[in-house]
Simulated assay, not measured.
Amino acid sequence: MNSKWFSNFASYLSTMTGRPGTFVVAASLVIVWAITGPFFHYSDTWQLVINTSTTIVTFLMVFLIQNTQNRDTAAMQIKLDELIRAIEGAHNALLDLEELEEKDLTRFRKQYENLAKEARTALREGGSDTDSPFVANREVGDEKRRDTDNNDAAHNKPAKRERKD
């Protein structure tokens, strides 16, 4: 089977099934099925129609959703790899990280968990962490932080940024 044909078909189908109109059609079919119940005396065949239909649609949608998710994940990984590659000081060893074995991923994860722990400790001690958004440091005290922010704002000084490499 031609994979390009399937990719195009899956992309089109996932776009179409995600539209509000498709939901309205599906909901309408369920309502029509429910309304026809008394005409068919709620027979086994009547119940089998909806059960079989929903099972088939669900079965096929699993593969469609998985294909779409695989494509989206691959595209996102490429974009992240490009950001890592383009940023000066970023670790190029993180490129294509998703292809590593679990033990290697665990090693990287532990290293970054340690870096995060060190950064949080530094924040609690009144240091700064320029590699992440502002984190409320309640142990240092809100007044101290507000005073510092007000002094910087009064002097129109941008906050100093340090880069850790």
Rank of each mutant, 00 (worst) to 15 (best):
S7V: 01
E98D: 10
E82Q: 14
R109W: 08
N150D: 15
E139A: 10
E98N: 10
M76N: 06
G37W: 03
M1I: 02
R71M: 05
E143N: 10
K103P: 02
A153C: 12
Q66C: 04
R85P: 02
W46G: 00
L83P: 00
T73A: 07
M1R: 03
A74T: 04
P158C: 03
A116T: 12
I65H: 05
N92V: 14
I50C: 09
W33R: 01
D129W: 11
T17G: 00
F39N: 12
N70A: 07
W46V: 00
A153M: 13
R146P: 01
V24S: 10
A10C: 01
Q111P: 00
Y112L: 07
R161T: 13
T52I: 11
L48E: 14
A74G: 01
I50P: 01
M1A: 09
D149H: 12
D44V: 08
S53W: 08
D147T: 15
N156I: 05
M61S: 10
I87C: 11
R19L: 06
S128L: 09
E88K: 14
R109V: 04
E98W: 04
K164I: 13
L115D: 07
L95D: 01
A119L: 04
H41Y: 11
L115R: 14
R163D: 10
D81L: 04
T148V: 09
G141V: 12
K110D: 15
R71A: 08
K117R: 08
V135R: 11
I65D: 07
A27V: 03
A75T: 03
V24D: 08
I65F: 06
V32C: 10
R124E: 09
